[in-house]
Design a binder for these strands. Structure first.
Length: 706
RNA sequence: CGCGAAGUAGAGCAGCGGUAGCUCGUUGGGCUCAUAACCCAAAGGUCGGGAGUUCGAUCCUCCCCUUCGCAACCA
């Protein structure tokens, strides 16, 4: 296996509508950064590109929410994300943005090329349009009543209550979340990428060629999609925020490239900008077969990077990714990270609370990088806990790795005058041989793990190597041997040998740990008084990195401990920020602020509703439905069957005797085969819990509410 | 509903047909150069549940359960 001529490494483009959290960091950025730093240490030709994804409907929506312009939003978050990545030492060669003119040009041209060669299809469809907002509506921005469970929290793509996937046409009483007005249908023409025509290629390329070297979860997902039959996908949208279509195309007014089409092209435009900035040629990176392209992403992005973008690249004549090491997700303290519920740890929060704290500094960057790599969700979802963070730092980084180096340095100063002692070959024994073998073997092992994108294991090997150093030192006990110097003429030689090897091991550790913990490597360089060139990967495994007689600096602690109080503070902070989130439980941040803007209605409209009080007499779970309860509600004159989607909030028994408010003249609707005759009014707390709207004092069932 | 991935000691993970391993944590011992640490040892698992194939299954097959993801903002 010969090494590729050059590498192009990408990390998923973060969407510029908010700050990114440590889950993002662990999923797509740290692994890529480790890989890239490793390649650079190997003197490989490598470019690491990323940038902000700044198009799509969510950006104008976020702007509306924050009361500003789309441009202001992307500027703000682009800047913030760029800074955060820098502060956590993610070493992009370029952090670009899709709003850049170069990107617009690149993406338009890309579309143009595909269009000219007839690779795209056009189709006229009817889509929902919001007349007052003058905008076509994405499925997600249409809200209505779910035809399956009757919840009014259903969106054009999915019902939030019963989880069923929907199309906008199925919604009852659809309204636009932009204006609250019912949308109208309007004809529009769009370009499509006929993915179905490329099934054979994908089958061959992924399921045959990459079955073994891609992660099982990636191949598995692709298999599902390919075998399930691919559909043509719309490439354009009616929107005024995004990349324009080529001017030569008729009917392109008011249309932009769909964000999924434009975003991955961001990798290409970023490469172009990097080449411009550095006087290089970008073309080989995308066109030469000897370039190895690797996309680092999260698992939710697999379809774009393994199916759609490769089809685009192939049509355009560009190279295909060699691998797409997608990570699973990172949970936080027992729950999914969620922006809307504010259950997350933003990169920025960590930077402020640790890196920029008085006792912080770059070592805190490495601590986070260490923990996130150690728990990287490479094969399944994993979990960030503050306790885990503390343990990883205190008992591995500090106690094993840091301590080995510290004791080596202290002893070297105490017993060897602060200089690299000579190695006396005549006193070499089996223990020395063992350590030497470990030093020589480690790089190969770590290298092959890195080549397989097994970062967690590679990092473990490094810590394990320092653990071997500790064991070696324990066996050698130079502090004991030092007491025999008077009587035993060989004592000093044995001490010398021990510390000589420990120092060479330290130099090796610096090289090996450099891709993972760059600041630690730098501190070690300083302590060893050597130049950065020593960190080149080819030096790993050498046992003559430090010259005999060379005097070294005083010991310096590499990592500080994480105190109990610090993690308690973070846990409290997490709890507090979650409780204070105004739109907790909402799947779409923009939704709550827009929902109140329902159109004014006349009294007549209100009068159409018949509301009555009722009392629940019986309740039972509906079979084969997680969320539905079948209720018998006493309305005085009659008892009605009402099916309600509240099973996750209330046990059936606990509902007997509850007073409720019922919409009694709602058209009957069948759910799971049971006819529901009415709807129970509920309000939702900020935690997403549903509570009944009840009369303030007991009242006979059947009383009219007005 | 369907598709994909995952379910192995308190936690995090390896193993994937032949006496169940690693790291952290816990307990005990040793040691003291080191950020009260390091070294050694022990305890701790009916490998999600059930059935089948096999001389033999954590590993293969089938069924079930749980968790996560699944194409239009999400790592």
């Amino acid at each position: 296996m010969s090494a590729p001529k050059r590498y192009l490494i990408t990390s998923a483009l973060p969407y510029a509508n908010g700050l990114k959290h440590v889950g993002h960091l662990a999923g797509a950025y740290i692994p890529a950064d480790i890989y890239v730093r490793y390649l650079r240490a190997h003197q490989r030709d490598v470019v690491f590109v990323c940038g902000s994804d700044e198009h799509g409907t969510a950006i104008p929506i976020q702007a509306k929410k924050e009361g500003t312009t789309a441009q202001a939003i992307i500027d703000k978050y682009h800047q913030a994300m760029k800074e955060d990545f820098e502060k956590l030492s993610i070493s992009f060669d370029i952090y670009h943005r899709t709003s850049a003119a170069l990107h617009h040009q690149t993406a338009t041209d890309f579309f143009d090329t595909l269009e000219k060669q007839g690779a795209l299809q056009t189709k006229e469809t009817e889509q929902f349009f919001d007349e007052s907002a003058h905008s076509f509506l994405a499925d997600r921005y249409i809200k209505g009543t779910c035809p399956a469970c009757g919840s009014d929290r259903a969106f054009g793509d999915q019902c939030e209550t019963c989880g069923r996937s929907l199309s906008p046409e199925e919604l009852l009483n659809p309204v636009s979340t932009l204006s609250g007005q019912p949308p109208v249908k309007k004809k529009t023409t769009h370009w499509y990428l006929p993915l179905d025509q490329h099934e054979a290629f994908l089958q061959e390329w992924i399921l045959k060629q990459h079955q073994k070297d891609w992660r099982p979860t990636v191949v598995g997902q692709c298999k599902g999609w390919i075998e399930g039959g691919l559909q043509p996908r719309a490439v354009t949208r009616d929107l005024d925020w995004g990349v324009s279509l080529p001017a030569r195309i008729k009917g392109a007014d008011g249309k932009v490239l769909y964000v999924w089409f434009d975003a991955p092209i961001g990798y290409i435009s970023a490469t172009k900008q990097w080449a411009l900035d550095n006087g290089k040629d970008w073309k080989p990176y995308w066109q030469d077969k000897e370039t190895k392209l690797v996309h680092f992403i999260g698992k939710d992005n697999i379809v774009f990077h393994c199916i759609i973008f490769p089809v685009m690249l192939k049509l355009h004549g560009y190279i295909l990714p060699d691998n797409v090491p997608a990570n699973e997700f990172l949970n936080l303290e027992g729950d999914k990270m969620s922006t809307s519920r504010n259950w997350k740890l933003d990169m920025r929060d960590y930077i402020q609370d640790f890196v920029e704290a008085p006792n912080g500094g770059p070592q805190c960057v490495d601590m986070l990088r260490y923990y996130l790599t150690q728990i990287a969700p490479e094969t399944k979802d994993s979990e960030f806990t503050w306790k885990g963070f503390q343990e990883a730092v205190n008992s591995e980084l500090v106690a094993v790795f840091g301590n080995f180096i510290n004791r080596t340095w202290v002893l070297m100063h105490k017993l060897c005058q602060g200089k690299v002692p000579p190695f006396h070959a005549t006193f070499k024994d089996g223990t020395d041989e063992e350590l030497l073998k470990a030093i020589v073997d480690a790089p190969k092992k770590i290298e092959s793990l890195l080549e397989e994108y097994k970062f967690r294991e590679a990092l473990f090997e490094i810590i394990d190597l320092s653990r071997k150093g500790n064991q070696y030192m324990q066996k050698k006990e130079p502090w004991i041997v030092a007491k025999q110097i008077e009587q035993d003429p060989s004592a000093q030689a044995r001490i010398d040998n021990c510390l000589h090897l420990c120092l060479q091991l330290t130099a090796n550790l610096a090289i090996l740990v450099n891709p993972f913990l760059p600041h630690t490597a730098k501190t070690l360089l300083h302590q060893m008084k050597v130049v950065e060139k020593m960190l080149q990967w080819e030096n790993a495994g050498r046992i003559d990195l430090l010259k005999t007689g060379y005097s070294l600096r005083a010991p310096q602690l590499l990592f500080r401990k994480i105190e109990d109080q610090e993690i308690l503070t973070q846990l409290e902070k997490l709890k507090k920020q979650t409780m204070s989130t105004p739109d907790a439980g909402s799947a779409l941040p923009a939704e709550k602020s827009i929902a109140p803007a329902k159109a004014t209605i006349q009294y007549d409209d209100f009068a159409k509703l018949e509301l009555k009080t009722g009392i629940i007499r019986a309740a039972e779970k509906v079979e084969k439905a997680d969320k539905l309860l079948c209720l018998q509600v006493d309305l005085g004159s009659e008892t009605r069957t009402i099916v309600s989607g509240i099973a996750l909030h209330y046990a059936p028994e606990s509902l007997i005797g509850q007073s409720v408010t019922v919409v009694t003249n709602l058209a009957p609707r069948k759910m799971k085969g049971i006819e529901s005759n009415g709807m129970i009014l509920m309000a939702e707390t900020t935690e997403g819990k549903l509570v009944f709207i009840q009369p303030a004092q007991p009242i006979d069932p059947g009383a009219i509410v007005s």
